[in-house]
């Protein structure tokens, strides 16, 4: 491509404005990272980073001996997110395959907007539903230790993950050329065998990326878990007990924290950990898509 050396001033000005606007995204990303670093740094001077990462007690509001162990929050996040993934992966994949391979165009025309609607529902509504309705159902079925618990959050998150998964996974399956399906069917494969041996392997990178991406969203989700899981900070691995996630800790604690205090900066540190985690997860999704892209 060759650049035009005779740009009129108006064109130059426009191009400059567009460039500046575009840089704002890079700037915003840098600002997020920089702000988290700046906010978190003071914490590192007063608490031990090792204690932070290995501490099993999160009790930041103790008047004399506050403890800032991130493990209970980390485990809380993981329990809820993995629990959600465990539910969302089979259901979401089933849904994607149904949508890409089985549904008639008419049914599809109804189902796809429904998925978009589900994706558009604000997370506070999911949180409200989990708090008021779902927790009651779970109480009846599982007789949990605490009414608001990790399972409650996981189920609700699963419902939120499914639209993301389905959208991305269905795209990947649709990208598999029809000719490959025809080839398989013409050899006497059933439709299911075709899906299993041809469509899924050929779209695997996209399907895996869909799962990873949805998982990343679950890790970063705040309102739903905040309202659904009860926010107890003890470290345990029981799905039927209350947990607090990293996101929920930030959201709740900022309500009472003193500006510029140690606790304040530790919350930025938690935010930094969260940011790095989701960054890596998204990176993984992107890497999977690129690295294992199929050539048809």
């Amino acid at each position: 491509m060759r650049k035009n050396r005779h740009l009129p001033p108006r064109e130059k000005a426009i191009q400059l404005a567009l460039t500046v606007a575009t840089w704002s995204s890079v700037l915003a990303l840098a600002a997020v990272f920089g702000e988290l670093l700046l906010g978190a740094l003071p914490a590192l001077s007063s608490i031990s980073i090792i204690d932070f990462f290995t501490g099993t007690v999160w009790n930041p509001s103790h008047p004399i001996y506050p403890l800032y162990g991130i493990l209970p929050l980390f485990v809380g996040t993981m329990m809820v997110s993995f629990g959600a993934a465990l539910i969302a992966i089979p259901v979401g994949l089933g849904c994607s395959i149904w949508l890409a391979e089985l549904a008639s165009p008419r049914v599809k025309a109804i189902f796809k907007p429904a998925i978009e609607i589900l994706a558009g529902i604000p997370s506070v509504i999911f949180g409200f539903f989990a708090l008021v309705i779902l927790s009651e159902w779970i109480a009846v079925v599982f007789e949990p230790v605490t009414k608001l618990n990790a399972l409650n959050g996981a189920i609700m998150l699963a419902v939120m993950m499914i639209p993301i998964m389905v959208t991305v996974a269905e795209d990947a399956m649709n990208a598999v050329p029809m000719s490959l399906r025809e080839a398989s069917l013409a050899l006497g494969a059933t439709r299911w065998e075709t899906v299993r041996h041809v469509v899924i392997p050929a779209s695997l990178s996209g399907v895996v990326a869909a799962v990873v991406l949805a998982f990343g969203r679950a890790v970063g989700e705040t309102m739903t878990v905040l309202m659904a899981t009860g926010n107890a900070t003890a470290l345990h691995f029981d799905l039927l007990r209350s947990v607090q996630t990293m996101t929920a800790a930030i959201a709740i604690d900022f309500g009472e924290v003193e500006f510029g205090s140690e606790h304040y900066h530790v919350l930025f540190l938690v935010g930094l950990v969260l940011f790095v985690m989701t960054f890596l997860i998204n990176f993984l999704a992107d890497w999977v898509t690129r690295r294992f892209k199929e050539d048809y």
Partner: peptide
């Protein structure tokens, strides 16, 4: 069996 216009080997 059927062989198609555009060669369509599986990506295997």
């Amino acid at each position: 069996g059927m062989v198609f216009q555009k060669p369509n080997p599986f990506p295997k």
